[in-house]
């Protein structure tokens, strides 16, 4: 049976596909702002910091979105507090806070019944997506895309020239924490598809690929969403056909796209770079 036939026939695969595509789109879009603001490590940190929140939510029997947003934001605030109130540099503060949150999450998860829960949260299992998970992903996707649509101008200026943004009275602090909130939502939406460990790849790699191809932010957002979607679809195909981990397959497709663009991009590719260097010598 081919992948297409299976896709038409099995509802679980359709749900997996819808979820994975949505995750590809929103990770790509949010990822653009993450890499342009030099916050890749922060993206990694927040995604890991979601783990204790998910565990606490399971233990308390509440929706795990709530716990995830709380621990994600507490970690972001903690990082800001440590780096602003001591000589500790930002990346060091990030390293301390997110590993602590992650370690706490692992301990909490061990109180839950099965260890397969932990495995699935860490590495994702898109083929086991329930309808409720799919709908949650779709709703998160709409929130994230809506947030970026309505605050596009503010996100652009606070990323490009935060001083001017502040000078005319924009609160760059609120924009930062707003973006961190969206990031925790995206991480939660990605749990089933790629898992906590690899979500940072979906944030950064498609966005970085797009960054090498265009000089316009609006185009970069669409390209990143496109690369995220393509990676999700092709990754899911490999995952289903050869029985591979869905998250890992999707990430490796994204990496392959990046490698191709890195070498062949007409504007910023390796070939062009080499040529330019030769011509200036």
């Amino acid at each position: 049976m081919t992948f297409i036939e299976a896709l038409l026939q099995y509802e679980f695969l359709q749900k997996a596909m819808i979820t994975a595509v949505m995750v590809g789109i929103i990770c790509g879009v949010i990822g653009c702002f993450i890499i342009l603001r030099g916050m890749s490590l922060m993206g990694d940190a927040i995604s890991h910091a979601v783990l204790p929140g998910v565990a606490i939510s399971y233990l308390l029997g509440i929706n795990f979105l709530i716990g995830a947003v709380v621990t994600g934001l507490v970690t972001a605030l903690g990082i800001g507090f440590v780096s602003q109130n001591s000589r500790i540099k930002n990346d060091t503060a990030i390293g301390i806070m997110f590993t602590s949150a992650f370690a706490l999450g692992i301990i909490l998860i061990s109180f839950l019944r099965s260890s397969s829960d932990l495995y699935h949260i860490l590495f994702g299992n898109v083929l086991a997506v329930r309808p409720s998970d799919m709908w949650m992903t779709v709703i998160i996707g709409l929130i994230v895309l809506g947030g970026i649509f309505f605050f596009y101008k503010e996100l652009l200026i606070s990323s490009f020239d935060p001083t001017m943004a502040q000078a005319y009275g924009l609160s760059t602090r609120w924009i930062h924490y707003g973006l961190m909130t969206l990031l925790t939502l995206v991480t939660v939406a990605s749990l089933q598809t790629v898992g906590i460990i690899l979500v940072v790849a979906m944030l950064i790699t498609p966005a970085a690929t797009a960054y090498l191809l265009t000089n316009r932010l609006s185009r970069m957002l669409f390209l990143a969403a496109g690369f995220g979607t393509f990676s999700a679809i092709v990754g899911l195909y490999f995952s289903f056909t050869y029985n591979l981990s869905s998250g890992a397959s999707i990430v490796l497709v994204a990496t392959t796209l990046f490698a191709l663009v890195f070498v062949f991009s007409p504007r910023h590719g390796l070939m062009r770079h080499r040529k330019r260097k030769e011509s200036t010598v």
Binding site: S159, D161, T163, R216
Partner: peptide, 18 residues
């Protein structure tokens, strides 16, 4: 809104896609 600030060169990321 009637005060404009032009930052130092080093404060701007010149690779930004704008």
């Amino acid at each position: 809104s009637r005060v404009a600030y032009v930052p130092q060169r080093s404060a701007i990321d010149w690779d930004f896609p704008v």
